[in-house]
């Protein structure tokens, strides 16, 4: 795991919203073939940190990011970094399923189309089928690709969003509490999907569900009040935390 250089490294990252400091001096790296979970109570800055990794915070006018974040060794906040390309390489799945109000096919085809990834209609059909298959949705929707994406159930919508994210063939996938709006069965399907995606994509997942973090991730980062309290192997964090605060949190005595 540690022989290859990490896919993404963030060092000494500090984010301000206006004058309020949201995260303070956080350093984390994500390896090529692992799933990293970010846990912590609400408002601890884990989602903010996740959004700095593909510069989604650029859309918040008051947000200011300091520190150094690199994708394959390139500074993603460097002036020559094209943010559109960055977001194609670092895909994102959001807390609430947010398919476009278009057909299932169009939802998946949109990203490849704007980036010119398909040369022909059959190319595009192939990308759509592959992405939906990888997202574990193909069997359920293959006969109704022209139905609206918003007509699917919540769990299917979230898998559609994952299919949409992987259709542009990203290198990293960021997931911001992808299961918080889903029932346990849909959650189990997404977790299974994360297992299958692992290895092909580097994955960072924010979750409030500690069992989920324990199940899906190799390493876990615990955030509290904007600081990174502890970051290490998931098995260590959950069985043998070094910090008192981590222990309190994962044993359910807090949060």
């Amino acid at each position: 795991m540690s022989n290859t250089p990490p896919k993404m490294t963030a060092s000494h990252v500090t984010v301000h919203y206006g004058t309020k400091r949201a995260i303070d001096d956080v350093s984390i790296d994500i390896d090529q073939d692992e799933v990293v979970a970010f846990i912590g109570p609400s408002g601890c800055g884990k989602s903010t940190f996740l959004r700095t990794l593909n510069r989604m915070n650029d859309t918040v006018a008051s947000a200011r990011v300091e520190g150094d974040i690199r994708l394959d060794g390139h500074d993603i906040y460097a002036p020559d970094m094209d943010v559109v390309q960055l977001r194609a390489r670092v895909g994102m799945v959001f807390q609430k399923p947010n398919p476009f109000p278009k057909s299932i096919y169009e939802n998946v085809a949109y990203g490849p189309r704007i980036h010119g990834l398909a040369q022909s209609k059959s190319d595009m059909d192939g990308i759509v089928e592959r992405s939906l298959t990888r997202a574990g949705l193909w069997a359920e929707v293959k006969d109704r690709l022209s139905d609206s994406g918003t007509a699917l159930s919540g769990g299917q919508q979230q898998r559609l969003c994952i299919a949409r994210a992987i259709a542009v063939d990203p290198e990293v996938i960021l997931m911001d509490e992808p299961c918080s709006a889903l029932d346990p069965i849909a959650t189990a399907k997404i977790e299974e999907l994360i297992h299958e995606l692992r290895g092909r994509y580097a994955i960072a997942i924010v979750t409030h569900n500690m069992q989920q973090a324990a199940r899906v991730s190799q390493r876990t980062a615990f955030f509290h009040l904007g600081t990174l309290v502890e970051f290490g192997r998931t098995s260590d964090i959950f069985t043998n935390p070094r910090q008192e605060r981590t222990k309190d949190y994962i044993t359910g005595r807090y949060g």
Partner: peptide, 9 residues
């Protein structure tokens, strides 16, 4: 919807 579109680049 804006987030979704920005998210795929």
């Amino acid at each position: 919807i804006r987030d979704a579109a920005l998210g795929v680049g």
